[in-house]
Design a binder for these strands. Structure first.
Length: 320
DNA sequence: TTGTGTTTTATTGCCTCC
DNA sequence: GGAGGCAATAAAACACAA
């Protein structure tokens, strides 16, 4: 016995139906609940019959029960009914009307004060304990459903955030690919212009001074180093400024910051994908790819005249 | 009819509040 | 310490496919 609680579900005073129905009619107060008692003069509910001795119950007007459930074998004659009532300790389900009554009461308030409990018990012809148990189980079911709802909401929120995150990741990868591509292009161009310069030098040097060995002594790497300093800085700056476009996600403190994510509940559901390289490593990589390039200060960039070949990716353009 | 999964009713043990 | 709530669980009732 838990907590000194007394479970006397099988006894409870052996109340008779006549008393129960008398109480029910006298005390049924609430209007919606009244509507459940509109079956002519007959009582709506079976009365106290769960886990009680049915000898007492049947001694009253037990043969006159219009609200027996269908499973009560109402068509099967007296013998089965007799057997049924000689199973005193079996679980009995509440009738549909009883459940409806309880449901309506639960809608009003899912907590059960002692007065309401005894009132409901009287109205329904149940033990107060049964009413309490029903409410308890009903609260448990409600809680389960509520959890399911909460889960669905969270799931939807997660899906939405995940979609945003995936888009940003895709965008980031595309930008990365563009950086690599553009870097290659620039290097290639520089290389070509360097060799042109070299051939010009060769021509000039060949004419007045016949010294091909001097020209050959300049290695390719040196050409690149020399020429790259003179590379068109505005082109590079446009690349760089476009790469770090304000709409694009960017890193500042090691996290992805984007208008999309920052606008909403920034609980940082997603940690930024751990890049193959750390931010420092990525910076170093950029430096190694564009080593001697001198990027202009942001204030020196003229944004009024964007480069013809915008390096902005399609995603960025779509966002605008 | 029977096996199996689900729902409903009830019990138990623990916890909190007064 | 009693009353009542809750979680976990048992077990009966029920639904349903094979």
């Amino acid at each position: 016995m838990a907590g000194g609680r007394v479970f006397n579900s099988a006894s409870s005073g052996g109340s008779s139906l006549s008393v129960l129905f008398h109480n029910q009619k006298a005390s049924c107060a609430s209007e919606p609940l009244d509507s459940l008692f509109l079956s002519g003069s007959s009582p709506s509910f079976l009365g106290s019959r769960s886990m009680v001795s049915f000898e007492d119950v049947r001694g009253g007007n037990g043969s006159n029960r219009p609200f027996f459930r269908s499973y009560d074998h109402e068509d099967n004659g007296d013998d089965e009914l007799e057997d049924y009532f000689h199973q005193p300790e079996k679980k009995r389900r509440l009738t549909v009307d009883q459940v409806q009554f309880l449901e309506k009461s639960f809608e009003v308030d899912n907590k059960l004060e002692p007065e309401r409990k005894s009132q409901l018990a009287k109205d329904l012809g149940l033990q107060p304990r049964q009413v309490a148990i029903w409410f308890q189980n009903r609260r448990a079911r409600w809680k389960t459903k509520q959890l399911e709802k909460d889960y669905e909401v969270l799931q939807a929120s997660y899906d939405s955030l995940k979609a945003d995150y995936d888009n940003l990741l895709k965008e980031k990868n595309e930008l990365k690919a563009e950086v690599v591509l553009l870097t290659d292009k620039v290097l290639l161009r520089d290389k070509e212009s360097g060799s042109l310069e070299l051939s010009d030098t060769n021509k000039k040097s060949q004419e007045p001074v016949q010294n091909p060995a001097a020209a050959e002594s300049v290695s390719e790497g040196e050409v690149s180093k020399v020429s790259i300093v003179g590379c068109k800085q505005e082109e590079i700056s446009s690349v760089k400024s476009d790469i770090f476009d304000s709409d694009s996600p960017h890193y500042t403190d090691g996290r992805v910051h984007s208008p999309l994510l920052d606008a909403g509940d920034s609980s940082h559901v997603f940690e930024p994908e751990q890049s193959d390289l750390s931010q420092d490593e990525e910076d170093n990589l950029s430096k190694s790819l564009l080593p001697p390039y001198i990027f202009p200060k942001l204030e020196d960039i003229d944004y009024s005249d964007p480069p013809e070949n915008s390096y902005r990716c399609k995603l960025c353009k779509q966002k605008q």
